[in-house]
């Protein structure tokens, strides 16, 4: 039963404000992770690069210049309470939550002076939509009255280095761990290290990739609730940092700021693994309506 109606424009305005905010301001945990990395880094050039990244987020906030010129493809994860409905505007009686999110993103990218990086189709004309829409939107239905939207501005350089692979279900943990570390290492300078690495384990072909992206939404410093995977996260992060790739790919101890694993049940024949690479400019945020 619907017990709560949220006006369409409430969603549009909230998404617009959020998309502008994340383009100019890194989340607190990411800023802290960069500051901590400066303290730990032993390579002078890498330390210098990390200091420049800190300077970059200060300038971005203070002078209203986006953190990065690639202001990303907007990816939204939506938790939609079953008791909640969107009231469409009079002139658009068929408008849905998807329309509201896309409208918020289009006005946010315009009013926020953000780069429009979306083309309407991939191979033939590649004409820019000039609105940075459509966003990639993932809807989940949950009990209750709330509407929660996580938004990520995902850069192209790091997304291009993400990988998926099917392993045999009997494969050793070490082999899988090795492939994950290699994938992060091979992402290299092109993907703007230090990274945040999202790992999906299990599910099927597409759910596994989705898990790897959803993993990026976790707070830096958080652990997987199961000790087995929490330990694996810790070991993988150490191994990625031991690769020596470093900020800008020019060497150093800081190749990743965090590594998160998300898991799902899977088929007896399958062990899907996905690695979603995120750059240091880890722009994301959440609103609850």
């Amino acid at each position: 039963m619907i017990t709560r109606n949220i006006p369409y424009h409430t969603v549009v305005n909230a998404v617009k404000d959020l998309v502008i905010r994340i383009a100019y301001e890194l989340p607190g945990d990411v800023k802290q992770a960069l500051r901590d990395a400066v303290g730990r880094e032993s390579n002078p050039r890498a330390k210098h690069s990390l200091e420049q990244l800190i300077e970059n987020y200060r300038i971005a906030e203070a002078e209203k210049i986006p953190l990065c010129q690639d202001t990303g493809l907007a990816v939204a994860f939506v938790e939609w309470g079953t008791q909640t409905a969107i009231t469409p505007p009079h002139d658009k009686p068929d408008a849905t939550i998807t329309d509201a999110i896309n409208e918020g993103i289009a006005s946010g990218y315009k009013e926020g002076f953000l780069r429009k990086s979306v083309v309407a189709e991939p191979l033939n004309t590649r004409d820019n939509t000039n609105t940075n829409t459509p966003a990639v939107i993932h809807l989940t239905v949950v009990p209750g009255e709330h509407l929660r939207i996580w938004l990520m501005a995902k850069g192209g350089g790091c997304e291009n280095k993400s990988q998926f692979r099917m392993f045999n279900p009997t494969e050793k943990k070490e082999v899988i761990a090795g492939w994950i570390v290699e994938t992060a290492k091979n992402a290299g300078a092109n993907a703007c290290p230090p990274f945040v690495v999202g790992v999906g384990l299990g599910g099927d072909f597409e759910q596994c990739c989705l898990l790897s992206k959803k993993a990026l939404l976790r707070d830096i410093g958080s652990q997987h609730p199961q000790p087995f995977y929490a330990q694996m996260e810790k070991e993988l992060l150490q191994a990625v940092n031991a690769s020596g790739l470093g900020p800008q790919g020019l060497g150093g101890d800081t190749t990743a700021l965090a590594l998160f694993i998300e898991t799902a049940p899977c088929h007896i024949a399958s062990l899907p693994v996905a690695v979603n690479i995120e750059c240091h400019s880890h722009r994301h945020g959440r609103i609850t309506l």
Partner: peptide, 8 residues
């Protein structure tokens, strides 16, 4: 090489 992601 310039510092990737330091657009501001």
């Amino acid at each position: 090489s310039a510092l990737g992601g330091a657009g501001a």
